[in-house]
Design a binder for these strands. Structure first.
Lengths: 244, 244
DNA sequence: CGAGCCGTTGAGGGGATTCAAGCTCAGTGG
DNA sequence: CCACTGAGCTTGAATCCCCTCAACGGCTCG
């Protein structure tokens, strides 16, 4: 059978998902960046692209997961309730990240995954990855890369965000959020209680520290839930903080 | 070619490592538990079984890793230095755990890995896993399972050990160490400064809390660096702590 | 316009840190 | 044999940072 040229294939209206995938701005960094166009063709029908609002839940802890998700835009937080009954946010995922990997292992999800901002996802059924993985070595390597990435982020969270004085924790969080800034250079500024759940601080302390930084010109608050950072002052403040 | 019976194969003195592997007490839970005896035969020559003392380093952050390790006995800690220059322990690994997974991806190690107790390891060259992985689907699944396990442990660390009052953090740490208890029911009791690096507390605070728990009969300190836990009192103390 | 959510600010108290001193114990050498 | 030493652990006292409790303001929405 003759194979169509890739350009035509990806514009074929009989493969509506083809256009989404080929146009996907995160394809280079996304899971299926490891696939060639021919492999890509076969998967279009299986992928949905749900859209969520801030606060919506992607999946729930304990749920028997049958899919993973690529984050095309927006930020996802992973949270769980501690043995002491407190809500804690243990990690964030952003554009290009692959979440819900545990579904591949037929394990229930290990956390609640919640949208922090409006969210564009690609829903990838577990079986699809299993099928492709048998033929395509690179795909499995790519999956393992994502696992390692998540692990490193979780460890960095322990080291950088869970320790030190309140001001330093907030500074480090802002530096992390800076990496998820949108095209206009705006960051998502979490609600104070979410900050608290991330940094292990109270709402009041978060509010005080953020307000202080606003007065110092480190950030400019732009409702709703956004802010513009002054990178230079932020870096300077972090420097000062770490020196002490 | 005729295959030898497994029992003979594994006792074959021409495969000295065969005896170690077949007798390995962690084989059921170890990486190569996914392999059959025939596959197992081929790998013996490639595996070394180093022995380390407490304080020795398994590998260093940034090192270009060419091997992963199975922990046959003992406890390993993963530590890194924060941007603020403080040493932080971000995770532990114990018997049956597979460490240094990032070597599979040709990435440098993400942390320092240090022996907390005398340590028996199996050193598994990266190339060996790559070779076996191409033939054996289950092996790769098993590797991914380890990755997920490490991720869940890191997230649990954030949620349970990095938050709450000092007494609760120490209680939770003891409950974690309880899972790594040896045959006599003794746990590894970290030095106070290591506890501090795990729980984000000062040496003095750790000392005060541990001493208090010793007076309460929750634990009995047995130098060097060991202790016997009173499981019931520990659980009761944790219960009380979480209720508040 | 009142209700409710979210953020902010103040005052007071508490738990961890800081600073400091003394303790135990193993190793060393006179 | 024992004084000496240093590392690790413990304890005390003072300080400080964050938490708790409380009140208030801005905003959205019914």
């Amino acid at each position: 059978m003759l194979m169509k040229p890739i350009a035509l294939l990806l514009q074929d209206p009989s493969h509506p998902q083809a256009q989404v995938c080929s146009a996907c701005e995160v394809r280079r960094s996304a899971l299926f960046g490891a696939l060639d166009a021919v492999s890509l063709e076969r998967i279009h029908d299986d992928i949905a692209a749900p859209h969520l609002e801030a606060g919506d839940r992607v999946y729930a802890l304990g749920q028997a997961g049958t899919a993973l998700y690529t984050v095309r835009s927006g930020i996802v937080r992973f949270e769980r309730v501690t043995a002491a009954g407190e809500r804690r946010i243990v990690r964030l995922a952003g554009r290009g990240d692959l979440i819900g990997l545990e579904a591949l292992l037929h394990k229930p999800y290990a956390d609640d995954a919640v949208a922090c901002t409006p969210l564009q996802l690609c829903r990838i059924p577990r079986l699809l990855v299993g099928r492709l993985g048998q033929e395509n070595e690179d795909l499995l390597t790519e999956v393992m890369r994502r696992w390692q990435r998540a692990l490193e982020q979780a460890e960095a969270w322990v080291a950088e965000l869970a320790a030190g004085p309140a001001r330093r924790r907030v500074l480090r969080l802002l530096m992390l959020l800076e990496h998820h800034a949108d095209l206009q250079g705006l960051i998502w500024l979490p609600r104070r209680d979410d900050m608290g759940a991330m940094l292990n601080l109270t709402v009041e302390t978060c509010s005080r520290v953020v307000s202080q930084m606003r007065r110092e010109g480190i950030l400019e608050i732009l409702p709703p839930s956004q802010a513009r950072l002054d990178g230079a002052r932020l870096a300077a403040a972090a420097q000062t903080q770490d020196a002490s």
